[in-house]
Design a protein around this nucleic acid. Structure first.
Lengths: 199, 199
DNA sequence: CGTGCTAGTCTAACGCTGTTAGATGTTCTA
DNA sequence: TAGAACATCTAACAGCGTTAGACTAGCACG
């Protein structure tokens, strides 16, 4: 039965197209424009077809967040490839904030309240692991005891998120936010190198 | 004409009650439950009454954000009264994250995308000024050159916001977020004291 | 005292949203 | 070729923000 596999492929393709279209609407016109009917009509369909591929709007949003994390991961690849631990850390920080500035609406959905806290956390897990690895490598290289590694992770992650949030504001801007992220992270790392962090 | 002044007072009272009710719904049931009809029926009115006092839902949300900043300011009062500059800084940071954890939905609206970036920034201006004063006092006391004061402000503010955002997640929690905020801020301040921040 | 004005409130409606049920047509299977 | 499976549409529901028009109460003035 060759047709059934083709059917399945077409189904998967349509699902991908829906997701792609939804991300497009979100990025170009913001979350307010992201309606089921809008996504459907943009692909010359009607709204109910989306429900053949996503249980409801929340499910669609969740996949959008997942897509966002994948996109961010690829944009972080270069920075993560740096050999020097400090360079890797700072360039990753800059790339992170850069991504947030390039895709403000997507970033807002990725970290906003639209999708529930638990699912959001789960989707961010890979990024979290990456950061954990980076921090262990850094602390190993500089022979500094970070105390609770998990705490250090949260601090770095939270700081980057804070700077990225600033970058969305018109009064701060992407470029400056990137500079601030590097400064903040430098200050934190410097603080950790010259003092016990648990204190 | 004494009746007209009574009328005006009643008008103002009703406006306050609407705002109060809206904040109540937001804090207890989240932003999804915050509808015009819901606020109205909670006060045994119908929806159109709200439009006699607020132009639209965005205007109501904006006032909710303003209310949130006032509430936060009063909760920060004690910490801001500390004589020691370092204590003042760290206790304010803790109080800030504490507030965010106590009023997660309110905090989310205060810093989310629901109300436009410019108005949000304007409403946060007083808090920003407070932080600026604190930082100048701190740098003066420790005789450290912060470089661009504005940059330092954004860094501290962004960091606190980042930690407060973490505090909302179930996996982190309020108590730990407060500890992390103090740790992060300590690390940043330590970094600034032992190195030029512009580097 | 009665008449008219003003302010406050409600009902009804509009267009939009997410979502579902049922009908229609198209494509594959047997 | 008959029927099952699938893809898609139309129509509708309840709820949303919002507005217009009707109704009612209280006050001002002849």
């Amino acid at each position: 039965m060759p047709s059934s596999t083709r059917r399945a492929r077409e189904r998967a393709d349509l699902r991908d197209r829906i997701l792609e279209t939804a991300v497009g609407v979100l990025e170009t016109e913001g979350v307010a424009a992201l309606t089921m009917r809008r996504v459907a009509t943009d692909m010359e369909y009607t709204a109910p077809v989306i429900y053949q591929h996503f249980a409801n709007k929340d499910a669609l949003l969740q996949e959008i967040v997942a897509h966002g994390h994948r996109a961010m991961a690829t944009e972080l690849e270069h920075a993560l490839g740096q050999a020097d631990v400090d360079r890797r850390m700072l360039e990753s920080a800059e790339a992170y904030v850069h991504f947030a500035g390039d895709h403000p609406h997507l970033y807002a959905v990725m970290n906003g309240t639209a999708v529930g806290g638990e699912e959001r956390r789960a989707l961010a897990e890979p990024a979290h692991d990456l950061l954990r690895d980076m921090l262990t490598a850094w602390s190993g290289h500089h022979a500094v005891d970070l105390g609770d590694l998990s705490d250090a992770c949260e601090i770095v992650w939270g700081t980057l998120h804070g700077m990225a949030s600033l970058g969305v504001l018109d009064t701060v801007g992407n470029e400056r936010a990137r500079r601030l992220a590097v400064q903040a992270l430098s200050a934190i790392l410097h603080g950790w190198r010259s003092a016990a962090p648990g204190a």
